[in-house]
Simulated assay, not measured.
Amino acid sequence: MTTRDFGQDLRLWADELRAIASEGLYWSGADAYQRRRFERVRRIAAELWALQATDEVGAIETCFRAEQPHVAPEPCGDAAIFNAQGEILLIRRRDDGLWAMPGGGFEVGETPAEAACREALEETGLAVEPLALVGVYDSRRCGSRTARHLYQFVFLCRPRDVTAQPTLSNETLDVGWFGEDSLPPLSPGHAPRIRDAFRCWRGEQCAAVFDRPEQ
Rank of each mutant, 00 (worst) to 15 (best):
A32R: 00
A115N: 13
D181T: 15
S22I: 10
A14N: 00
R193M: 09
T111E: 04
G58D: 14
T111L: 03
G97P: 07
E119Y: 04
A79P: 04
R94Q: 12
L126K: 03
G103D: 09
I44K: 07
R145S: 07
R140K: 14
C76V: 11
R4D: 12
P102R: 01
M101E: 09
H149N: 08
L89F: 08
A19S: 12
C206W: 12
V108H: 06
E56S: 06
L131K: 09
A127R: 09
C200P: 12
R148M: 05
L150H: 11
R42M: 13
D5E: 12
T163E: 15
Q152A: 05
Q165S: 14
L51S: 08
V209H: 08
A113L: 06
T111P: 02
A80W: 07
A208M: 12
D9H: 12
H70N: 11
Y151I: 05
V57F: 03
G143T: 06
R43L: 11
L150M: 08
G189Y: 04
D96Q: 12
I44E: 04
L150P: 02
L168F: 04
A132W: 08
Y137D: 07
P166V: 01
L10E: 00
R160H: 02
L89P: 04
L150V: 01
L126Y: 04
S187R: 06
W13E: 13
G29Y: 01
H190L: 06
P213W: 03
Y33T: 15
W27V: 15
D95K: 13
E47A: 09
W13M: 11
Q52A: 11
E16S: 06
A115D: 10
T3P: 14
P73R: 03
L173M: 06
L12Y: 06
W49C: 12
L17Q: 05
R158A: 15
G58E: 14
E110S: 13
H190C: 05
N170D: 14
A72Q: 08
G24F: 02
T146M: 02
T54Q: 14
L156T: 00
E110H: 12
L133C: 14
F106T: 15
C76L: 11
R93S: 14
A14S: 13
P130R: 01
R202Q: 14
A45W: 03
